[in-house]
């Protein structure tokens, strides 16, 4: 699983770097829609991240959890 994961990461990074064409600001109307704004869900994501931190072994480590809920 480790090899395939790293390969996928490299593939994603290569895809990003390959797409470095500039899209002018006036062409980004669609990207400013709430459904395309990654930061518009920050408030929702914060609590959900806390839930996943306390229930999954592969998330957390950032200190957002406490001891009482068995989060540690």
């Amino acid at each position: 699983m480790r090899i395939s994961s790293i390969s996928l990461a490299c593939l994603a990074l290569a895809g990003l770097l390959a797409g470095c064409a500039t899209v002018a600001p006036y062409q980004r109307g669609y990207l400013s829609r709430p459904s395309m704004d990654f930061s518009s869900e920050d408030g929702e994501t914060s609590f959900r991240a806390h839930v996943h931190d306390s229930r999954e072994g592969a998330t957390g480590g950032h200190g957002s959890t406490g001891g009482g809920c068995g989060c540690n």
Binding site: A9, G15, V23, L31, F38, G61
Partner: peptide, 29 residues
């Protein structure tokens, strides 16, 4: 890294490295 690819397509990727040390268990278990 976040990149606008076309007027309708955007992509992002990232990496987090976390190192924890100290008391990593739960005292109630």
């Amino acid at each position: 890294l976040s990149q606008v690819l076309t007027p309708q397509l955007v992509a992002s990727a990232g990496y987090d490295l976390v190192h924890n040390w100290g008391y990593l268990q739960n005292p109630y278990r």
